[in-house]
Amino acid sequence: MSDVISLESIPTISPMFRLQWEEVQDAFVILYPEGMVKLSQSAGETLKRVDGAASVGDIINDLEAQFEGADLKDDVLQLLEVSKENGWIKTTS
């Protein structure tokens, strides 16, 4: 399955999942019926920018602005693809 995500597409968190900051875990988590996935710091930083308005390109630019000098495009695309496979996010084509 070639699930390539373009820079123009706009991701949203799927209504089947909830993303939130968990103080006690010191991390962002994905919550779903009777379950929870704890996100790494980079995954959390990326997915918290998924707001249904920002495009994939916007998210990459924003992350690269925050983490100066880093080339994050491939990492972000890979994470979003995995997130889509897991059903956490949906994207416009």
Binding site: E22, E23, V24, Q25, V29, L31, E34, G35, M36
Partner: peptide, 8 residues
């Protein structure tokens, strides 16, 4: 407060 995230 103790860190419960899921409630049933």
């Amino acid at each position: 407060k103790m860190g419960s995230a899921q409630i049933g």
